[in-house]
């Protein structure tokens, strides 16, 4: 029996193997090479000198030489990373605030209506990212359509000047990633048993209490997945800061790109990408820890 099971297990592992190998080769390979490149010397005109190992790229991330040749701390890159993380965090918050009620609303509809609502929710997501950003450019620009509408309604007499600011980036990112937040929460809510909420009301819970103590814990997995799905692309966003932010402050994605373009410093670009990857991994680990904690809480308190 045990041998039969292990043969079946091996056969099934064989089915999964092509996908695993494909990802291991085409994702794992590049990631290893990238780490390798970040640890070698750069060639003066782009590219790298393969044999010469150095940690210059990582030193450059934190330190610089001042005029006297002394090494001092350089916070420029850290600031750029911090700003990107804050912006991604804000996007997570905004999509959560808008997306959670939406997901709840959809989950409480008749199943046929649900499918339709989900379809219309994800439709804009299938429009090219460039196009979505570009549409907001048309809306937000000075004397653009939003300004014209606001002035026609006499809400304001001056242009709002939203475009080319961090606000514009946040609006664009929130718009782009909203479905990534709604879909996982919705998926969790679809399985959620809403009679529990009624039970909570019967026990005298307020709406807020029912929400925080019954619904939110029940769909926690969906919320965490949604947050992660929004946070990661938000952190690496490249197009939105250029188009809507007016490029006045660099984000991680743009910083990495310039290392491969104008600066021709591949090892530094690879090192920057590696640091970004570590940030993402940290977020993913945090998620795993949260899930484990909630599972343990559940099992100890059935």
């Amino acid at each position: 029996m045990s041998t039969a099971a292990s043969v079946a297990g091996r056969r099934r592992a064989g089915l999964a193997a092509p996908a695993i190998l494909c990802i291991a080769f085409f994702m794992g390979g590049p990631m290893c090479i990238m780490v390798f490149v970040s640890l070698v010397e750069r060639a003066p005109d782009g590219g790298v000198i393969w044999g010469n190992f150095t940690t210059d790229a990582y030193k450059q991330f934190l330190f610089e030489e001042n005029l006297l040749g002394e090494t001092t701390l350089n916070a420029d890159y850290l600031r750029i990373y911090l700003r990107s993380a804050l912006l991604a965090g804000f996007t997570v918050l905004a999509t959560l605030i808008v997306g959670f009620p939406t997901a709840m609303y959809i989950a409480m509809q008749h199943p046929r209506r649900r499918a339709l609502l989900i379809f219309f929710l994800s439709l804009p997501f299938w429009v090219n990212l460039l196009v979505r950003n570009y549409a907001w450019l048309l809306l937000l620009r000075a004397n653009g359509l939003l300004d014209q509408a606001a002035m026609a309604l006499r809400l304001t007499s001056e242009p709002l000047n939203i475009l080319y600011s961090n606000t514009a980036i946040a609006i664009g990112l929130t718009y782009s990633f909203l479905p990534l937040m709604v879909l996982p929460i919705y998926a969790a809510m679809e399985k959620f048993d809403f009679s529990l909420v009624e039970a909570a009301f019967d026990l005298g819970a307020s709406r807020w209490q029912a929400l925080m103590h019954v619904i939110v814990p029940g769909v926690k997995g969906g919320i965490v997945a949604g947050c992660l799905l929004v946070f990661i692309p938000g952190l690496g966003s490249y197009v939105t800061p250029v188009l809507l932010g007016g490029s006045k402050s660099l984000m991680i994605g743009n910083l990495i790109e310039t290392q491969f373009a104008a600066a021709r410093n591949w090892p530094f670009g690879a090192a920057l990408a590696f640091v970004l990857l570590m940030m993402v991994m940290a977020a993913a680990l945090l998620r795993a820890a949260l899930l484990r904690k909630s599972r343990r809480a559940k099992s100890s308190n059935p």
Partner: peptide, 8 residues
């Protein structure tokens, strides 16, 4: 692949 930023 889903958790790696596109630029990376």
């Amino acid at each position: 692949p889903l958790v790696i930023p596109e630029i990376v």
